[in-house]
């Protein structure tokens, strides 16, 4: 059996931004999956706000993700059959917020990311940067305490990445949420409050 993560010991302060770097296959995405409750560890514990996640059963982990976690993916992973506003509204509806209230909140969130005039646009008509902004809005609209970003600039050009990352950081910070980013981008890692490198299953501070 291949051990991906071994004796990872990490404590993150609420509201901070942490960047995880590492080579391909080093276990960065696995770490995010563990933090979000998608995967669970063979041993050890993962706690969020004092709540042990690793021991939760599947339905509880789903509920945990729905309530407390927001995701930003490299390839955006927007639902192509939904318009911009509906994509952002989706987490709210999964959390039981429906109707006008949900629409108002999603529209407000989109206005914050600069897409207030594109509410009804189809997602495949947006540029990469715009799509990632929709993804950011979707990750934050239900006000999660943890935002996980997997290579958020990996599919964007440098200029666009330069716009998206500050936006993500500022919005997460404004909500007092914690941001955990996996990235290859050393500059992005350097801009985080704390940068760590995953090597041979362990975390090391980036010097």
């Amino acid at each position: 059996m291949h051990r991906v993560l071994d004796a990872v010991d990490l404590e993150v302060r609420t509201g901070s931004a942490v960047a995880i770097t590492g080579r391909s296959g080093s276990g960065k995405s696995t770490l995010l999956n563990l933090l979000s409750g998608i995967d669970f560890p063979d041993s050890g514990t993962i706690e969020l706000d004092g709540r042990e996640i690793g021991s939760l059963r599947e339905p509880e982990r789903t509920e945990f993700r729905r309530l407390h976690v927001g995701f930003v993916y490299q390839f955006f992973n927007l639902v192509p059959t939904l318009c911009v506003e509906e994509n952002v509204r989706l987490p709210l509806e999964l959390n039981g917020v429906r109707g006008a209230q949900a629409r108002r909140r999603s529209a407000a969130m989109l206005a914050r990311v600069g897409l207030g005039d594109r509410l009804q646009s189809a997602v495949d008509t947006l540029s990469g940067g715009e799509q990632q902004r929709v993804a950011i809005a979707r990750a934050l609209v239900h006000e999660p305490s943890l935002v996980l970003a997997d290579e958020p600039t990996g599919n964007l050009d440098e200029a666009t990445a330069g716009e998206v990352v500050p936006l993500l950081r500022s919005l997460v910070s404004a909500r007092g949420a914690t941001l955990m980013m996996v990235t290859h981008d050393r500059a992005l890692a350097a801009a985080a409050d704390r940068a760590l490198e995953l090597r041979e299953g362990r975390l090391y501070p980036v010097s």
Binding site: S36, I38, E58, P59, T62, E63, R65, R66, L67, V69, F71, Y73, N77, V79, L90, P91, L94, N95, R138
Partner: peptide, 11 residues
């Protein structure tokens, strides 16, 4: 993606 966003298996 829906499962990651919190959609349950039942949903």
């Amino acid at each position: 993606v829906l499962r990651a966003l919190g959609a349950t298996r039942l949903e």
